[in-house]
């Protein structure tokens, strides 16, 4: 069984994001980039399925500039067999990404597409769902457990107040939630091997997808600074403030 794992290059989770002076976006110059954490979970799940003997080939794919090759190499160091870069300088939005992925799905014919439930930059949580709709595949989103059984896959989803288990017919789209697994570290021998694994580049134009943005970001602002806390002298004062100022009791 072949698995396609779309991944995204985003600002490293540990970087304190700064808003650009002109409020047009966040500062990306000289900022450390890394694989989206939910995508790491997607890669890990694919690798575990391969280790269990369910999956035979893992193909990682990303959309972005040449720099995104770095994240594809990471995916291959973690266990992806080969990877595809859909190269574009445009800031690709979920619909365009889903359309481009559809083109790759048609070419590669994977039985499973595993992606992160959202990217920590745009926080859209749309790509997986749009891809499922465009390709007609079933979708199991926000997965916390994935069990492949013959031509079906059971996906346990984290929903408000509990879990929901859905059964999908393969091929299917799965998006990963935080608790699905704990991604491993890339071992140094595998990082070296990954350098020799195939990485194909496709230009976005060749896929016939229009990458022109459909939404426009008007303004990006930092959250309002919180004012400092105060110390109260007594329980009575605290209660009075909670009652009269905060109005929470």
């Amino acid at each position: 069984m072949k698995v396609l794992v779309p991944i995204k290059r985003v600002v490293d989770y540990n970087v304190k994001v700064r808003v650009k002076a002109d409020n047009s976006g966040v500062e990306l110059a000289n900022v450390k980039m890394a694989m989206n954490p939910f995508c790491e979970i997607a890669v890990e799940e694919a690798v575990r399925l391969k280790e269990k003997g369910v999956v035979t080939e893992i193909v990682a794919v990303t959309i972005g500039s040449k720099a995104a090759q770095e994240q594809l190499r990471t995916a291959m160091a973690l266990g992806a067999d080969r990877s595809i870069l859909i190269e574009t300088e445009e800031d690709a939005q979920p619909l365009a990404i889903a359309k481009a992925l559809k083109a790759i799905v048609e070419k590669e014919q994977p039985q499973l597409v595993i992606l992160g439930k959202q990217a920590i930059d745009g926080d859209n949580s749309q790509t997986g769902q749009m891809l499922a709709a465009l390709t007609g595949m079933g979708q199991g989103t926000f997965a916390s457990e994935v069990v492949v059984d013959g031509d079906k896959v059971k996906v346990t989803r984290e929903v408000d107040g509990g879990f929901q288990t859905v059964e999908l017919k393969l091929p299917a789209v799965i998006t990963t939630d935080l608790r699905l697994n704990e991604p491993r570290y890339a071992s140094l021998p595998n990082i070296m091997k990954a350098k020799k694994k195939p990485l194909d580049t496709v230009s976005a134009a060749d896929l016939g997808v229009d990458f022109a943005p459909r939404t426009k970001t008007l303004k990006v602002e930092a959250p309002a600074a919180r004012s400092a806390g105060i110390k109260v002298a007594s329980v009575e004062e605290l209660v009075s403030k909670l009652k009269n100022e905060a109005k929470v009791i």
Partner: peptide, 15 residues
């Protein structure tokens, strides 16, 4: 014997 390398600042701080 074996070794790993961080692929992000997040992993670096985890290690």
């Amino acid at each position: 014997l074996d070794g790993v390398m961080s692929q992000s600042l997040t992993q670096a701080s985890q290690l």
